[in-house]
Nucleic acid binder design. Structure first.
Length: 431
DNA sequence: TCTGGGGTCCTAGGACCC
DNA sequence: TCTGGGGTCCTAGGACCC
């Protein structure tokens, strides 16, 4: 038996903890560059704001009270840590699946799960201020679906029995009750069924979750893939995806950004790519990993149809796997020079570290060149300084300086303070 | 004017091997 | 006219997730 605990409208809820006046109002959190809506309060959903809705297309709703905030990931990450550590206490094993969701292993846990779920919710709400919903199911796919039902029953009364709101335990429903819930749920709500496969399923007559549960797994494997076959078996109650509570070493590390305005010059791109490469190298060392190659890409904006379009990328192999910021930045900049074409208005660039392996497990190199000094201690010092005095305190010269001169900088006009992660921004309570 | 960022997994197809 | 059979490995692209 699995549980899935998921924050409601997570980013919006984090903002509301520190600005209670936003409770009950339509609120959205915008992506980087204040580009589009990536989180919406229930009230904002009711106004018709979609996930990924471009802000310039829905900002007229400000007249109806819609509040938009720039994404504050430092805040959300910290609130997530608080929530996760509380949730972890309710079961022997926890898998943190995303910033706002974790699976719990409820195998062998006795008692009324619905009551346990409500107690967990209450604790998280009281201790962190974050509302959550809890779903229980015999497989991870079922637990995800139960969580969806718990949320939807709370938000849109009428579709599901009201007692399933907030906490929904499929294990307590009879076969008939469960089938009724499945029949009322569109197939696209199932974990692993996205837009493409959802459309194909509906066209073949599989409209609801119940239809999918009764589909032939072998046929789905033939027509789609083994992934969908597993999904159906999980819907039928056979667990195919285990709980994974061991954080694995990442297989790739990416840092990319869209620019606040179009960028034309190689020098500006070079600054951006250097910055992204340096940040990626930091993440790499945090993972105790080393990169065998560095991929760089740049591209124009596909939304500016009148602009000439270009997209280029190149993978630069490293002589030896490394986590050294200097080498990685150099490789990225070399790659950039290979793919840069003048005369385009660039909208985005990124650096991806690939061929990752554990630090110190790399193959040795025949020592034909004079040995470079071991810079791992330098990196440790750099990370230490930046940890203590803030990101960017020590940086490579090629990343340029932070400030308005930075052509490629991000637009963030509605950012809230770092309430929980910066001394400067600690809220002050007045009686 | 203005459209996010960071991941994983699977599959098909090509290169290459004997 | 007509050109084998059986593998492995790698990559690019596409699907999905949040």
């Amino acid at each position: 038996m699995f549980a899935l605990v998921d924050g409601n409208n997570f980013y919006v809820s984090c903002e509301r903890v520190f600005r209670p006046s936003l409770v009950g109002r339509p609120v959205v959190v915008l992506s980087n560059n204040d580009g589009c809506a990536i989180a919406r309060s229930n009230e904002a959903k009711a106004l018709g704001v979609r996930m990924g809705h471009p802000w310039f297309q829905c900002r007229h709703l400000e007249a109806q009270g819609l509040v938009a905030l720039s994404a504050n990931f430092a805040l959300y990450g910290d609130m997530s840590d608080r929530m996760m550590s509380l949730v972890a206490h309710h079961a022997p094993r926890q898998e943190i699946y995303s910033i706002d969701e974790s699976f719990l292993d409820f195998t062998g846990i006795r008692g009324n799960r619905t009551a346990i779920g409500h107690a967990l919710r209450e604790q998280v709400l009281t201790w962190t201020g974050l509302p959550t919903c809890v779903g229980f199911g015999a497989t991870k796919t079922l637990a995800k679906l139960a969580n969806h039902v718990a949320k939807t029953a709370e938000r849109k009364p009428g579709l599901y029995p009201p007692e399933l709101a907030q906490v929904c335990d499929f294990g307590r429903l009879s076969d008939e009750q469960l089938d009724a819930v499945f029949a009322a749920t569109e197939v696209g709500e199932v974990w692993g069924v996205g837009r493409r496969i959802g459309t194909a399923l509906v066209e073949s007559g599989v409209r609801t979750v119940l239809d999918l549960k009764h589909a032939d797994p072998a046929a789905l494997r033939r027509n789609f893939s083994v992934v969908l076959e597993k999904t159906v078996r999980e819907l039928q109650g056979t667990s195919c995806v285990d709980l994974d509570d061991q954080p694995r070493q990442k297989q790739q590390i990416m840092v990319s950004r869209s620019f606040g305005q179009g960028v034309l010059r190689l020098e500006d791109l070079n600054e951006a790519v250097s910055t992204f490469a340096a940040r990626a190298a930091e993440k790499l060392r945090l993972d105790a990993s080393a990169a065998g190659a560095v991929l760089v890409f740049i591209r124009t904006s596909p939304f500016r149809a009148s602009d000439a379009q270009y997209s280029g990328s190149v993978t630069v192999p490293m002589v030896q796997p490394t986590s050294d910021t200097g080498r990685i930045v150099r490789a990225a900049c070399n790659g950039l020079r290979q793919i840069f074409r003048p005369g385009f208005r660039y909208a985005k660039a990124g650096v991806m570290l690939v061929d990752l392996g554990s630090e110190g497990q790399s193959q040795g190199e025949l020592d034909l060149e004079p040995t470079e000094i071991d810079r791992s201690r330098l990196m440790a010092v750099m990370d230490g300084v930046n940890q203590r005095f803030g990101r960017g305190s020590l940086s490579m010269a090629s990343t340029g300086t932070i400030g308005p001169a930075r052509q490629w900088g991000m637009r963030q006009e509605r950012r809230t303070p770092d309430y929980t992660t910066s001394w400067r921004d600690i809220p002050i309570v007045r009686a």
